[in-house]
Amino acid sequence: MNHKREKTRNKHQRVKRKSPMMLTKPRFSKKMNKVLAPATLAVLLTACASGPVSVGTQLQEDQDYIFFRAGAGDSYETIAQRYYGSAALSGKIREVNKDNAPVAGEVVAIPKRVLNPSGVYPDGYRTIPILCYHRFTSNTTSTDRLDLPAEQFRRQLQYLADNGYYVISLNELDQYMLGNREIPEKSVVLTIDDGYKSVYTTAYPLFKAFNVPATLFVYTDFIGATLGLRWDELKEMQQSGFVDIQSHSKSHTSLAVPPEQDINFAEEIRHQIRYPRALINQKLHKDSVIFSYPYGDSSDHAIEELVEQGIKMSVTVQQGGNPAFANPYLLKRTMIYADDTIDTFAEKLDVFHQEDLK
C-alpha cells in the first residue's frame, strides 16, 4: 500500500518538474485569439511544439503585436517597462492576455497600437485626474490649507509610485483625448497654480527625485515678487524637462462674465490671455498652449478667445476625472490640501467612472 502511494507521489512530482525552458502554448484572451492572424498564430503554435527554447526574448512580431517569450521572474510590469518604458502601462498587456501573471516559457502578446482609444468599457470608462497644488512648506505641519508640507507631498508621490500610477504630462493629455494614445489603467497629472517660490525650493527637487513631470501655471504679474518665482528659476525648471511652464493669466483676474456686462470685458479677456503668453514666449523661448483659469472661472468669451489664439486646453478647479471625450476647454482638476490624509488623497484619484454602458 505504501509502495503504491510512493509510486503515485513520484508520478505527480515528475509531472510538476516540467522544464521551464519549454515554450508553453499561448493562452491569450478570447478577444485576442479572434484578432490574431491565422498565419501568425500558426507560427506561434509551431514554436510551442519545437522543443527546448530560450526564454525572456522576443519571438515574433507583426504590425499590431510583439510576441514575447516570458522568462523566469517576468511579469506584465517588467515586460511593460521593457517595451513601453513604464511598468504602469502593464494593464494594456494584461488586457489581451488570459492570465494574471505570465508563466516562464509562455508567449505574451504585447500590443503595438491603440486598442481602445476611448477608454470606454461595458461597466464604465477610464478617466485621468488632474491634481492641483498651490504652495509648499518645509514645516512639518501647516495652518493654511494651501501650504502643503514637503514630507506630506513626498508621501503622496511615494503613494503614486508604490501603487502603479502613471504620471503623465498635461502637455501630452490631448494625445489621449484625440485617441492617439490609450488611457492607462491608473494615470494622473500634477499641476501647480500661481508661481510661488516654494515650487522651486520644495516641489521641484521632489519631481526630480521621483522622476515625474508637472505643469506650473504662472500669472506673470507675480513673477519677481517677494514670494514669487524669478524668471531664471522658471527657466531652469523648464529646461530640466520636469516642469512645464504655462499661463495662469496676467494678473489673476477672473474671466467669468461680470453681472454688469462691462463693455471692456472682452478686451480684458484678450489682454489676460495674450499678454502672459507673449511674455512667456519671450522670456522662456517656448509657446504657452495650455491655460489655467484664475479661480477656475471660465466663460464663453474666454473659451472663444482661447480657441482663436490656438490654445489647445484649459483647466478649471471643478473636481473629478477627465475621460477621453472631455471638453478640452473645461478640464476638471482636483484640489489637494494640507488637511488631506493619504486616504483622502487616494480617494481623489478618480481613474474610472463606474456606469452600466451595456
Rank of each mutant, 00 (worst) to 15 (best):
K4T: 01
R5I: 15
R9W: 13
R9Q: 12
K11I: 08
H12R: 09
Q13C: 07
R14D: 14
V15G: 03
K18W: 06
K18Y: 10
K31M: 10
A37T: 04
A39L: 07
A39T: 04
A39Q: 11
A42F: 08
A47T: 09
A47F: 08
A47Q: 07
A49P: 00
S54P: 04
E61K: 13
Q63K: 11
I66N: 06
F68M: 00
D74S: 10
D74L: 07
I79P: 02
Q81Y: 10
A87K: 11
S90Y: 07
K92P: 02
K98P: 01
N100H: 06
G105H: 02
V108K: 04
K112Q: 02
D123G: 08
Y125D: 09
P129R: 09
I130R: 01
C132P: 00
R135F: 10
T141I: 09
S142K: 10
T143K: 13
D144E: 12
L146W: 12
A150C: 09
Q152H: 10
F153G: 04
F153Q: 03
R154C: 00
Q156N: 10
L157T: 00
Y166E: 03
L170I: 10
E172D: 15
E172L: 06
M177L: 06
M177E: 03
N180Q: 14
I183M: 14
I183T: 01
I183E: 00
L190R: 04
K197A: 14
S198T: 15
T202W: 01
P205A: 11
K208C: 11
K208V: 03
K208D: 09
F210T: 02
P213F: 11
P213S: 13
V218N: 00
F222P: 04
I223R: 02
W231P: 06
M237W: 06
G241Y: 07
F242K: 03
H248D: 12
K250W: 08
H252N: 10
A256F: 13
A266D: 05
E268F: 03
E268H: 13
E268M: 15
R270E: 15
R270H: 08
Q272M: 03
I273W: 03
I273G: 07
Y275W: 05
A278H: 12
L279Y: 08
I280Q: 06
I280R: 03
I280F: 12
I290Q: 01
Y293K: 01
Y293M: 00
Y295D: 06
G296C: 03
S298F: 14
E305Q: 15
L306A: 03
G310D: 12
Q319G: 11
N322P: 02
Y329W: 11
L331G: 00
K332T: 11
Y337G: 01
D340M: 13
D343H: 12
D343M: 11
T344I: 14
E347V: 00
F352E: 01
